[in-house]
Amino acid sequence: MLKLIGAVLILLSGTLAGFHQASRFAARPRQIRELILAMQRLETEISYGFTPLPEAFRKMSDQLGEPLKHIFKSAAGHMASGGGITAQESIQRSLHENWKRTAMKTPERDILHQLSFTLGTSDRQDQIKHIALAAQQLKHEEVVARDEQAKYEKISRSLGLLIGALIVILIF
């Protein structure tokens, strides 16, 4: 009886782990898309609104959903803190603090990290170019992420169940 309960538990957790992995594969392209839209918004704020970076970030975070919201919100918070922190440091610090909550991977993080070096430090045209470049790179990552989603989303769901089953069989 006890064995049976154990087997069910193992199967269940295997399945859950598989579903969790699958949902990350599904969430990544969605979050990248959201990030691309955020970049376009930032471009508008800079090119037409002349909005200072902290305020632009705050506006972006208001319109974004979790977990991306936090990346921009805390970066804006760091910039406004008045502790002599540069925009670059604020963004990088925020990425460090909040990246784990997203489903995105290292390439996307590197793109934002790269962008942090130039944000706020040059004239409008230059800023727009860099943001457009980041958006372009993100689009490329989005395609990759969609491919991965198509390939691995279903597999990881069944794989979870299968691994659970394998462990059960091995134990018995």
């Binding site: 909005t51 970076l53 902290p54 540069t86 430090t121 040059s122």
Partner: peptide, 15 residues
């Protein structure tokens, strides 16, 4: 110098 410029421009030289 980079820091000063960043601080005095409110992190937004483009403005």
């Amino acid at each position: 110098c980079r820091r000063i410029l960043d601080l005095i421009s409110n992190h937004s030289l483009y403005t």
